[in-house]
Simulated assay, not measured.
Amino acid sequence: MTVQAPAIDEAFADPAGEDRLGRAAAALRDHGYAVHLVDTAAEARKLVADLVPRDREVFTASSETLRLSGIAEDIDESGEYQSVRARSGDLGDDVQARIRLGATPEVVVGSVHAVTEDGRMLVASASGSQIAPYASGARQAVWVVGAQKVVPDEEAGLRRIRAYSLPREWRRLHDLYGQTSFIGKILILEREAMPERGTVVLVREAIGF
Rank of each mutant, 00 (worst) to 15 (best):
T2F: 06
T2S: 06
V3F: 05
A5I: 00
P6Y: 03
P6M: 04
A7E: 15
A7M: 15
I8S: 12
D9T: 07
E10I: 12
A11N: 12
F12Y: 07
F12D: 00
F12P: 04
D14N: 06
P15F: 02
D19F: 08
R20T: 12
L21W: 03
G22H: 03
L28V: 07
L28T: 03
H31C: 08
Y33G: 02
L37T: 11
L37R: 14
V38R: 04
A41G: 13
E43R: 08
V48K: 07
V48F: 01
V52I: 13
R54H: 14
R54P: 05
D55V: 11
D55H: 13
E57N: 14
E57F: 03
V58H: 06
S62P: 11
E64Y: 00
T65S: 09
L66E: 02
R67G: 10
R67W: 11
R67C: 08
G70K: 03
G70S: 02
G70L: 04
A72T: 05
A72N: 01
A72M: 04
E73M: 05
D74Q: 14
I75V: 14
I75M: 07
E77P: 12
E77Y: 11
G79Q: 06
G79D: 02
G79I: 05
S83N: 10
R85E: 04
R85S: 14
A86N: 07
A86H: 05
S88E: 01
L91Q: 12
G92R: 10
G92F: 03
A97R: 09
R98I: 06
R98H: 08
I99M: 09
G102P: 05
G102E: 01
G102L: 02
A103S: 11
T104G: 02
T104C: 07
P105R: 05
P105F: 00
V107N: 08
V107A: 01
V109P: 11
E117F: 00
G119T: 06
M121N: 05
S125C: 05
S125N: 14
A126P: 13
A126Q: 15
S127I: 10
S129P: 12
Q130C: 15
I131C: 13
Y134W: 07
G137W: 08
Q140N: 09
A141Q: 05
V142F: 11
G146R: 00
K149R: 15
P152M: 02
A156P: 01
G157E: 00
L158H: 15
R159M: 11
I161T: 14
I161L: 15
R162I: 11
Y164I: 01
E169N: 15
E169G: 07
E169S: 12
W170G: 10
W170P: 13
R171G: 10
L173D: 01
H174F: 08
D175F: 02
D175N: 11
G178A: 05
G184P: 14
G184D: 02
L187E: 10
L187A: 14
L187F: 00
I188H: 07
E190V: 06
R191C: 01
R191M: 00
P195V: 00
E196N: 13
E196V: 12
G198Y: 03
R204K: 15
R204E: 14
R204H: 09
E205H: 08
